[in-house]
Nucleic acid binder design. Structure first.
Lengths: 180, 180
DNA sequence: GTCTATAGGCAGATAGAC
DNA sequence: GTCTATCTGCCTATAGAC
């Protein structure tokens, strides 16, 4: 659906609230009123965007599983954040930004947006567990790794400086190399 | 100024855009139109709030300097985030949230909001330097520590779970104990 | 200086022609 | 199914009484 793709891009660049239906429709090259033929409300459109994103994340994590060793999976995971440093410096983390926005709106949107974090944390926890970490420590490691990457994305965005992001991914890779 | 205090609280809880002038005025128990006697525009009010916050941060950092050893200063720094775990789980990090919002609005607001991060990073960098870190590593350590705390605040807020925050602060304290 | 009423503009949502 | 015109409501900002 072109509308979902357009909305996805605008939500990342401008946030949920500043992305007007008219903007999204223009970006998708469809008439403004037409949006309501496909989605009853703006919230429904947001839900569709989040569902699509979460599906992408699940597919990405499944793809990382083709890498045999958990350590290399984690390093590849971090590598994806490094690869997208420029995008993160320009527009922030898509997942973190959406969660932030959704947290403010509250309700069903917030819990659906949080779903992306849940997918990531559960997957990361499994990798740390496969590296021999105790259950509690595996989850703590997962939270720590994601917190570093999200925090670095926020700082990189605030300073419009991708090197902040690369700094942190390098640090995390070192940590993972010596983990366990 | 009562208006600035009220605005500060609402900006933290609801974000910049969702905090209407009327809301702020009600919170401060002054008539809505009155706000424009003190501030020409909403942006000017936001600037006043940010200036006040940054002054508080500068004062806090100066206060931490009374602690003699840099390691204990850093541990106290992290301890302040631990102490405010519940607040962070409920409303997110005030600094991070404001920066996120201001980044989206762009312009003068974004750079002023970023000023809080600059204060924190410069101070942290000095402490790591005092612990014997090379200049580059001191700054990297500062960015890493702040990224962890900001990322943990975002995750704690998304899951409405303060233990995520406490988990990360405990981890950071361990790291600082063995640093250098 | 303090307050009320309201102008002006924009965004979400709808009605109804085609 | 597709599109235009418009309603409704909210928010910033102002005008002007007191």
């Amino acid at each position: 659906m072109r509308l979902i793709v357009a909305a996805n891009r605008l939500f990342h660049r401008q946030g949920l609230e500043r992305s007007a239906i008219a903007d999204i429709a223009r970006e998708a090259a469809v008439p403004a009123g037409n949006v309501y033929y496909y989605f009853k409300t703006k919230e429904e459109l947001v839900e569709a965007v989040i569902a699509r994103r979460n599906a992408f994340i699940a597919a990405w994590l499944a793809d990382l599983e083709t890498e045999a060793a958990p350590r290399e999976r984690l390093i590849r995971f971090v590598g994806e954040f490094e690869r997208t440093s420029d995008m993160r410096a320009r527009h922030g983390c898509p997942v973190g930004g959406l969660c932030h926005d959704a947290n403010r709106l509250g309700g069903a949107l917030a819990s659906q947006a949080r779903g992306a974090f849940e997918l990531l944390i559960d997957w990361l926890r499994d990798q740390f567990a496969a590296l021999g970490a105790e259950p509690g420590e595996a989850r703590a490691g997962a939270l720590h790794l994601l917190a570093c990457l999200e925090g670095a994305s926020l700082l990189a965005h605030s300073f419009a400086d991708p090197s902040v992001m690369r700094n942190e991914t390098a640090r995390l890779k070192d940590w993972l190399e010596g983990y366990g």
